[in-house]
Simulated assay, not measured.
Amino acid sequence: MNGHVLVLNQDYSALTVCSVQRAVVLMHLQKVHLVESADDRYVRSPSVELPWPSIVRLKQYANVPYKRVMLSRKNVLKRDRNTCQYCGAQSNLTIDHVVPKSRGGRDTWENLVAACVTCNNQKGDSTPEEADMELARQPFRPSYVMFLRDFAGEIEDTWKPYLFLS
């Protein structure tokens, strides 16, 4: 039962992504409505055959406060696609402060980037301009929908309207 299922709130806003197994349990417990299913695929047991879920919607509205992506090393690396923002390397990655901490740089989305050990050491206690190193792209605060999309890997066409991608 490999795969991901988009979970929508009762108002059809994207809430999270879960496994097919979890979605089937929610369907069986009648906690969700099936919105979209995969063609010609089913989840079978000896007594039940259910459509393979692709999108489900909660029957009861879940009051979720403003969804923000938590600032963490793992999430910075995910935002930067596990790539050094100075040279493009994809191994031996660390987190670099664009404006060094010793110069008042803070731990914020806009000041942290993925960097390989070599580039991080070369940049040292300098700004990228002082070290003559150019960032591939400026760091930014990612949206919750962006992380939902990236968590699932390749997204299905049926998900796009709910993730504002169509």
Rank of each mutant, 00 (worst) to 15 (best):
N2F: 14
G3L: 08
G3Y: 12
H4P: 07
V5D: 09
L6I: 10
L6P: 10
V7N: 03
L8G: 05
N9I: 09
A14M: 10
A14V: 08
V17G: 05
V17L: 11
R22Y: 01
M27C: 02
H28L: 11
L29H: 11
Q30P: 00
Q30E: 15
K31T: 08
H33Y: 13
H33I: 10
H33C: 09
V35A: 09
V35R: 04
E36W: 11
S37C: 15
D39G: 14
D40F: 15
D40R: 15
V43I: 15
V43K: 10
R44V: 14
S45K: 04
S47C: 12
V48L: 13
V48S: 11
W52V: 05
P53H: 05
S54C: 13
I55H: 03
I55P: 03
V56T: 07
V56R: 02
V56Q: 02
R57M: 15
L58V: 08
L58F: 12
Q60S: 14
Y61D: 14
V69R: 02
L71N: 04
L71R: 08
S72R: 10
V76D: 06
L77F: 12
L77Y: 10
L77A: 10
K78G: 07
R81G: 08
R81V: 05
N82Y: 15
T83E: 09
T83W: 07
C84P: 02
Q85L: 06
Y86K: 06
Y86I: 10
Y86W: 06
C87D: 11
A89Y: 13
T94A: 03
T94V: 02
T94I: 05
T94G: 01
D96F: 00
V98K: 00
V98R: 01
V99L: 11
S102W: 03
G104D: 07
G104I: 04
R106L: 12
R106M: 11
D107T: 12
D107L: 09
T108E: 09
N111I: 05
L112A: 02
A114M: 05
A115D: 06
A115I: 01
A115V: 01
C116T: 05
V117T: 13
T118K: 12
N120Q: 07
N120R: 00
N120K: 01
Q122T: 14
Q122A: 13
K123W: 00
G124I: 04
T127W: 00
P128Y: 00
E129D: 10
E130S: 06
A131W: 02
A131D: 00
A131K: 01
L135E: 01
R137G: 07
P139E: 02
P139K: 01
S143Y: 03
S143A: 09
D150W: 06
F151M: 11
F151D: 07
A152Y: 03
A152M: 08
I155Q: 04
E156A: 13
E156D: 15
D157K: 15
T158M: 14
W159F: 12
K160Y: 13
K160W: 14
P161D: 13
Y162K: 07
Y162A: 02
Y162Q: 10
F164N: 14
